[in-house]
C-alpha cells in the first residue's frame, strides 16, 4: 500500500465517520438518555445512562405492543420468504429450462413486477373480496406477489449456470419432474437461496408502506408501524422513540455482520441482471 492510498483511506474514513456513522451514534445516545435530556435533541454524550430502563419501558409500552409487532413481522417475513424461495425457484427453473412462447408472457410479468407501482386501493378491494384484508396471511401473499419478480430473475440467472446434463442424468435415473427439481436442482440453489433469503427478509422486515395500507389495526401491528405510531405517541419521550429505532436497527445489523458477503452478492447479482 502506497502512502497515498493510506492517506486517502484515513481521509475517507474520517468523512465516512462524520457522514455515515455519527447518525447511528446519535441514535444510540438518544436511546440511552433520560427523557428530559433527550428532549433537548443535542448531540451530546449522555449524562446519565438509562439503557435498561428505557429498553424495558419501550418494550412494555402500549401493553407490550413491540413484542406483538416483532411476532407479526417475523411471521410475515418467514412466511413470505419461504414462499418466495419455492415459487421463485420453480418459475425461474421452468423459465430458464423450457424455451417457449409462454416465456415472453412470464418476462412481461416480471418486468411489470419490477416497474409498476402496486395499485393500492384496487388491491384492498381484491383483498376484501377474498377476506384477506387486515390479515397476516393476506400480508404474506402481498409480499410474495411484490417480491416474485426479483426472485424469479435471481433464480433464473443462477439456474443458467447449472448444466442441463444433471437434469438429464436424473431423467435417465427415473426421476419425475418434481424429483428432478426438489432432489437435484433445489439443493444446488443453496448459495443463491441464502442470498435471496437475506435480501428479501431485510426488505420485508423493513417494509412500511404495504403494512400501512393492507394491515391496519392494533393487533396486526408490524415493527415499522410501531415506529411510526410511537412517533406521534412519544412526542415528549424521544429517548423511547430512539430506543425503538435502535431495536429495529439491530436485527439487520446482526444479519449484515454475519452475512455481509451473501447480501452483497445478492444485491449486485440481482441488480445487474434486472
Amino acid at each position: 500500500m502506497t502512502s497515498r492510498q493510506r492517506n486517502t483511506g484515513i481521509i475517507a474514513f474520517l468523512a465516512a465517520f462524520i457522514i455515515f456513522i455519527l447518525p447511528f451514534v446519535f441514535t444510540f445516545f438518544m436511546a440511552v438518555k433520560s427523557r428530559q435530556e433527550a428532549a433537548l435533541f443535542l448531540f451530546t454524550w449522555p449524562s446519565e445512562w438509562h439503557f435498561w430502563s428505557n429498553l424495558v419501558e419501550v418494550v412494555q409500552a402500549r401493553n407490550y405492543m413491540l413484542l406483538l409487532a416483532y411476532f407479526n413481522s417475523t411471521i410475515i417475513t418467514v412466511g413470505a420468504v419461504a414462499l418466495l424461495v419455492i415459487f421463485g425457484a420453480m418459475v425461474g427453473y421452468v423459465l430458464q429450462r423450457r424455451p417457449s412462447g409462454w416465456n415472453k408472457l412470464i418476462y412481461a410479468g416480471v418486468l411489470m413486477g419490477l416497474m409498476v407501482p402496486p395499485a393500492v386501493v384496487p388491491t384492498i378491494w381484491v383483498l376484501q373480496g377474498l377476506g384477506l384484508f387486515k390479515t397476516i396471511h393476506g400480508m404474506i401473499l402481498i409480499q410474495v406477489a411484490y417480491g416474485l419478480a426479483f426472485s424469479v430473475l435471481l433464480y433464473r440467472s443462477f439456474i443458467a449456470t447449472i448444466p442441463r446434463d444433471l437434469d438429464e442424468a436424473a431423467i435417465i435415473d427415473g426421476a419425475k419432474p418434481w424429483a428432478i427439481f426438489f432432489k437435484v436442482i433445489l439443493p444446488l440453489l443453496k448459495p443463491v437461496t441464502v442470498t435471496l433469503i437475506l435480501v428479501q427478509s431485510i426488505a420485508i422486515f423493513n417494509d412500511f408502506t404495504n403494512p400501512l395500507y393492507y394491515l391496519p389495526g392494533r393487533e396486526n401491528v408490524t415493527v415499522q408501524l410501531t415506529l411510526f405510531n410511537f412517533q406521534s405517541q412519544f412526542q415528549s419521550q424521544f429517548n423511547l422513540l430512539f430506543m425503538n429505532i435502535l431495536l429495529v436497527t439491530i436485527p439487520p445489523l446482526i444479519v449484515f455482520v454475519i452475512f455481509n458477503r451473501q447480501i452483497v452478492a445478492g444485491m449486485t447479482a440481482g441488480a445487474v441482471k434486472g
Partner: peptide, 12 residues
C-alpha cells in the same frame, strides 16, 4: 443407462 461427456454427477 447413459454416461455424459461432463459426467453430470450430482455435486451435492
Amino acid at each position: 443407462a447413459m454416461v455424459f461427456q461432463s459426467y453430470a454427477l450430482y455435486p451435492h
